[in-house]
Write a protein that binds this DNA or RNA. Structure first.
Length: 565
RNA sequence: UGGGGCGUCGCCAAGCGGUAAGGCAGCGGCCUUUGGAGCCGUUAUUCGAAGGUUCGAAUCCUUCCGCCCCAGCCA
């Protein structure tokens, strides 16, 4: 028995739940994840999912998935299916506990009548503009609606006729009768129902009055028997309202606990902004691999494990925070390093001719599939006279910190031979190096010199005759600055879009075994990063996404060299 | 400005009156057939500030400062 307490077990929410269990306030744990089906889930939602599902699991309870579909104008079944898939992908299961706020419409209606009968709700004829004007401001109290004191009978009659469709859209609302002078604006007679002649994606046209989120949410939690309603800080100020409803109604009272939302550097995480990126064409869609949406991250090659580990490392608190994306990237690499098969791929090919290698000879060298996992085995990779190496791995006049290939220098080709660069052939018109003539040392087969000679660098390579071609999409952060929302007057976040967030490379050369890759398969291309096969791939036309690069110390050195000069 | 919330290392975050965990990032080194991975070391005499209580405070009290959220018939 270990006494190691999981890091995720010590946050204030879990602590509060333990206390509730110990004090007898609750005897079980039931949570819920309540998304609105009006868009795609992103990593911010993943935090709420991880908290609600994760905690229920830890405490031996369950977490339901309840779609908060109270606004038919914005919602669609397309989104409910997509969100379900995302949650499953993240690794969570709601079992038989799939609910919809719309399942409760009838019960909510009855509860509303109950409130009317108690004299705690009334039908108001104020227009939207008037409602706003009557609400007052942050510092001034609101004024009572002239309709506030209608009799219970009149309210009941009007409310029933609202439901029956006798009044035009927007003409009346049902409001809770609380306190127009409350310093908490949420308590200034909030609207419970509005008239909307809109077809609902589940209830069709059976309703023309729809409950607001504020009215529906707490009662749904109560009806379902939720013990702990875990939501973000935005709802903290609404809690007194939810308490008021529950108490006036005298029904079961769950406990709501709020936590701080997740924010990431170099990222924007609000539905509104993500939608703009899609609609204005800055990205190819919700599943663009640069998007922080779960569909986007999945396509990019993220693993659910990496995301969960990330969330666990970030932790839960009430402070508003902006987490450094490098933590996410770290978790991703950590996970991929352990599981991704290694392959060799040359992204920007430079031809190498081994002058002393026998014409027509093809050898097979044995390569390790994953040094982190011996059970992944080995594979054979063809080697021959003409090869491709990475352009970046050769420099004609290298600085002293560069220890890859250069004229007269010897390096190792991974799993193959030592080669020495004899000369570089240039395009006479551009001066660009177009191929390298090298010699190999037959005695170094496998990569070690019998005379104990060392080389500084090991390069990846692909045999030209055996290479398969592919398109590779290199992704970088979508935004160029840590906080894209921090913009000068007159600009918006799109001003900070990183113009280099996508590079498409064609004619990349891959080792032949990659021809068998299946969509979504993940690999580490040695010395480059992690890549996965994109669904855009067709027979004979492979497309790989770079999920994440490997940490690149040479790039750092180059940066410093650049900064110094 | 009324109400609510938050302020511990560059970024997260433990800490719950007994003398500042950990992770990421950074830096230095070791190791290495991935300049990857791994390993080691290193960074808060100080907890937004000032007072006070106490033998003793990041933890309790007071005041002040800063940041975030709330004025949708959105959720």
């Amino acid at each position: 028995m270990t006494n190691l307490e999981p890091a995720s077990g010590t946050d204030f929410i879990r602590e509060a739940i333990r206390q509730d269990l110990a004090s007898g306030r609750f005897h079980r744990v039931q949570t819920r994840f309540p998304p609105e089906p009006n868009g795609y889930l992103h990593i911010g939602h993943a935090k709420a999912i991880w908290i609600n599902f994760g905690i229920a699991q830890e405490f031996g309870g369950f977490c339901s998935l309840r779609f908060d579909d109270t606004n038919p104008a914005a919602e669609d079944v397309e989104y409910v299916e997509a969100q379900k898939e995302d949650i499953r992908w993240l690794g969570y299961d709601w079992g038989e506990h799939l609910y919809f706020a719309s399942d409760y419409y009838e019960q909510l209606y009855e509860l509303a009548e109950k409130l009317i009968k108690k004299g705690k709700a009334y039908v108001c004829d104020l227009s939207p503009e008037e409602v706003r004007a009557y609400r007052g401001t942050l510092t001034e109290p609101g004024r009572n609606s002239p309709y506030r004191d209608r009799s219970v009978e009149e309210n009941l009659d009007l409310f029933r006729r609202m439901r029956a469709g006798e009044f035009p859209e927007g003409s009346r609302t049902l409001r809770a009768k609380i306190d127009m002078a409350s310093p908490n604006l949420n308590l200034r007679d909030p609207i419970m129902y509005r008239i909307l002649y809109v077809t609902h994606h589940r209830t069709g046209n059976t309703w023309c009055i729809y409950p607001t989120y504020d009215w529906a949410h707490g009662q749904c939690d109560s009806l379902e028997g939720v013990t702990h309603s875990l939501c973000d800080l935005g709802y903290e100020g609404h809690r007194p309202l939810y308490d008021w409803f529950l108490d006036e109604l005298g029904i079961y009272h769950p406990r709501q606990i709020e936590f701080g939302r997740l924010n990431l550097t170099y990222t924007v995480l609000s539905k509104r902004y993500l939608r703009r990126l899609v609609e204005e064409g800055y990205v190819s869609g919700w599943d663009d691999p640069r998007m922080p949406t779960l569909v986007g991250m999945r396509r990019r090659g993220y693993t659910p494990e990496a995301i969960r580990t990330f969330l666990e490392l970030v932790g839960v608190s009430k402070a508003n925070s902006i987490v450094d994306v490098s933590l996410l990237e770290y978790c991703l690499r950590q996970d991929l390093n352990k599981r991704a098969l290694r392959r060799m791929a040359v992204l920007r090919p430079l031809k190498v001719i081994l002058d002393n290698y026998p014409e027509g000879l093809v050898e097979e060298v044995e390569a390790v599939n994953n040094p982190e996992d011996p059970s992944a085995g080995t594979r054979k990779v063809p080697f021959s006279k003409i090869l491709y190496i990475e352009r970046d791995d050769f420099m004609e006049n290298p600085p002293k910190q560069f220890y890859r290939l250069a004229p007269g220098r010897e390096v190792r080709l991974r799993y193959a031979y030592f080669i020495r660069c004899e000369r570089a052939v240039k395009d006479p018109s551009t001066g660009e190096v177009i191929e390298l003539h090298c010699t190999y040392d037959p005695a170094t087969r496998g990569g070690d010199a019998p005379d104990g000679r060392k080389v500084k660098a090991t390069l990846h390579w692909v045999s030209a005759a055996h290479a398969i071609e592919a398109e590779v999409r290199l992704y970088d952060r979508l935004f160029a600055v840590e906080d894209p929302l921090d913009v000068p007057e007159g600009k918006d976040f799109t001003a900070h879009l990183n113009p280099n967030s996508l590079h498409i490379l064609k004619g990349c050369k891959l080792e032949p075994s990659l021809a068998e890759a299946q969509i979504s398969d993940r690999f580490q291309f040695e010395r480059l990063g992690y890549f996965c096969l994109d669904p855009d791939s067709r027979d004979g036309r492979l497309v790989f996404n770079r999920t994440e690069s490997l940490r690149d110390t040479w790039a750092k050195i180059q940066q410093k060299l650049g900064a110094d000069s």
